[in-house]
């Protein structure tokens, strides 16, 4: 043993953790970066906006103010139409009851994004639970996957519409009109969109389960619950995160579609879909009232989709580092 063994000490200054790697890859995807930024801006705008903005979303002027303040056009409208009724205190104008459009947009965004995220979390929890159970316990696999197939064969949009109408009144009576509809829509979207997550998670769990470290954990007597929590869940985190972003997008669109068809929130409670629906009748005169909510829906969905795209690339170790 004349030769001393050269122990290779890794250079700690350049070593990077896994999440730094992920961030590096994510940064190189320009669309995802811009998408994420946009989503943060929209989120910030709708959460903080109503506190610093001077107009109230639900304030309806009465008497002479009503005539004076209703049907105000957005301030940029004055650029090509000098006779337009504009006011700097109302940057996006007012609706036919004199309510401020920007305030309503921000309030509606709060509701739409809250519904989207809550529904996504519900779908994610359901999907991850079913996926992990189906992948880990062989006995339940067949049954749960048949259930998944059955849910995928259901005509989801018609059934959501039907359920939204049939269950609305009793829920509204028990916990109030707004909260009732919120719970109802979140539950409906959550219950009908867990299937893709469950399938992906199950596939990954099946692969992870056969690895040696699971065998090692089991051979030292770790309980199934511990194995799932400590060893399996962290390893299937990336598909869960990707389907989370895509889930927000579909949930926002479904909620807006429900509100647009008139099966969503009550009329005085603005969401983006509801605002769009309310303005369709008078869109020939006031196209901006249709365009702004629509642009907000599309922008947030687009940014979330790009975010998910970049996240998928960043979390996939086969693509990362290329």
């Amino acid at each position: 043993m004349t030769e001393t063994t050269q122990t290779e000490t890794p250079d700690l200054s350049t070593a990077r953790s896994q999440w730094q790697d992920v961030w590096q890859q994510f940064k190189s995807h320009r669309g995802a970066l811009i998408g994420g930024l946009f989503f943060l801006i929209i989120l910030f705008g709708v959460v903080v906006g109503p506190w610093i903005y001077w107009n109230n979303a639900t304030f309806v002027p009465t008497g002479r103010d009503f005539i004076k303040l209703r049907d105000m056009r957005p301030i940029y409208h004055g650029l090509w139409d000098p006779s337009a009724k504009v006011n700097w205190a109302y940057p996006l104008g007012t609706d036919n009851l004199g309510r401020d459009m920007l305030a309503r947009l921000m309030f509606g965004g709060r509701v739409s994004l809250a519904v989207g995220m809550t529904a996504m979390i519900l779908a994610l929890v359901l999907g991850t639970f079913i996926g992990v159970i189906a992948g880990y316990f062989k006995r339940l696999d067949g049954l749960l996957m048949r259930l998944c197939d059955l849910f995928l064969a259901l005509p989801l949009l018609p059934m959501i519409l039907v359920a939204a109408v049939l269950f609305r009144e009793s829920l509204s009576l028990s916990i109030g009109p707004e909260a009732g509809v919120f719970v109802l829509i979140v539950c409906l979207i959550g219950i009908t969109s867990w299937m893709p997550t469950a399938r992906i998670v199950r596939g990954d769990v099946l692969a992870v389960k056969e690895r040696e470290f699971i065998l090692a954990a089991r051979s030292i007597g770790t309980k199934s619950g511990k194995i799932i929590n400590r060893h399996i869940l962290p390893n299937v985190l990336s598909p869960i995160m990707v389907s989370a972003t895509l889930g927000i997008a579909t949930a926002i669109i479904t909620e807006s579609a429900l509100s647009f068809l008139g099966f969503g929130f009550p009329p005085d409670f603005p969401t983006w879909g509801r605002l769009l629906n309310d303005s369709v009748d008078r869109m020939t005169l006031y196209p901006e009232r249709v365009i702004w909510p629509g642009v907000m829906i599309s922008l947030s969905v687009l940014s979330v989709n790009y975010l998910g795209d970049g996240l998928r690339d960043a979390l996939d170790p086969r693509i990362r580092g290329r």
Binding site: L276, G294, S298, L302, Y306
Partner: peptide, 9 residues
Amino acid sequence: MVGFSVPPF
């Protein structure tokens, strides 16, 4: 991407 994101309504 835009086609995915812009809802038909």
